[in-house]
């Protein structure tokens, strides 16, 4: 109750919920294989000169929450410093046989499945620690999945600012308008994390989100 009142007063009188805060946490959330770690790597390479984590075509490559501290992003005269948190993709099902089909050995696949379930739980638990979130969606895939709706709903319930990165915009099947129609309450920016397309506009929107 006291916290809610304090948050409300901060918003009213400071006009800036992040003013004076250090160690702001910016989370990357989304379903598996949407390109969260690829985008995290792009941001970290651009502003820290190092990568965040490994990527793979096999889903659930990121199975632990990873954090890079003090990333200072600049766009024109504006800048923002935050900790970037890359989270495991959220899903409602994990079948180790899918990993075998993707080329893993049985034991490796079972271990990956076990770690992936723990990673999803960890992702959800970290929601409460976020100051702002980029939802990374694969813009070639139908956005109307319950996982996406649950992520968006949970962020809205916590009053966490959200920007949607419609990733893989370089691909022919990419459909930015469908994502905009699915989540009209949020800003959507098309981006290719792999090739860096539209990344400057992405940084501009990111700073606007957190200022």
């Amino acid at each position: 109750m006291f916290k809610s009142l304090k948050d409300f007063l901060n918003k009213i009188f400071l006009f800036n919920i992040f003013k004076g805060r250090s160690n702001l946490k910016l989370g990357l959330y989304g379903p598996p294989n949407s390109g969260k770690t690829t985008l995290a790597n792009r941001i970290c390479q651009d502003w820290l000169g190092e990568e965040m984590g490994t990527t793979s075509k096999v889903p659930h490559e990121t199975r632990n929450v990873q954090e890079k501290e003090k990333i200072n992003v600049k766009s024109g005269r504006k800048e923002m410093t935050f900790n970037l948190v890359d989270t495991p993709g959220i899903a409602t099902k994990i079948d180790y046989e899918d990993f075998i089909k993707a080329g893993l050995k049985k034991k490796e696949a079972q271990e990956r499945a076990k770690e992936a379930t723990k990673g999803i739980i960890e992702s959800i638990k970290w929601l409460d620690s976020m100051d702002a979130v980029i939802i990374v969606l694969d813009s070639t895939i139908d956005p109307y999945s319950q996982v996406n709706i649950t992520i968006v709903g949970n962020l809205a319930a916590r009053d966490i600012p959200v920007l949607i990165a419609a990733n893989k915009s370089d691909l022919k099947k990419s459909d930015l308008k469908k994502i905009e129609a699915a989540f009209p309450q949020y800003g959507v920016i098309g981006v290719s994390a792999e090739y860096g397309d539209n990344i400057e506009d992405f940084y501009d929107e990111l700073i606007k989100l957190m200022k």
Binding site: I121, I124, N154, A157
Partner: peptide, 11 residues
């Protein structure tokens, strides 16, 4: 929304 999140965690 929170119950849906909880359902995923429990699953």
């Amino acid at each position: 929304n929170k119950e849906e999140g909880m359902l995923i965690e429990r699953t």
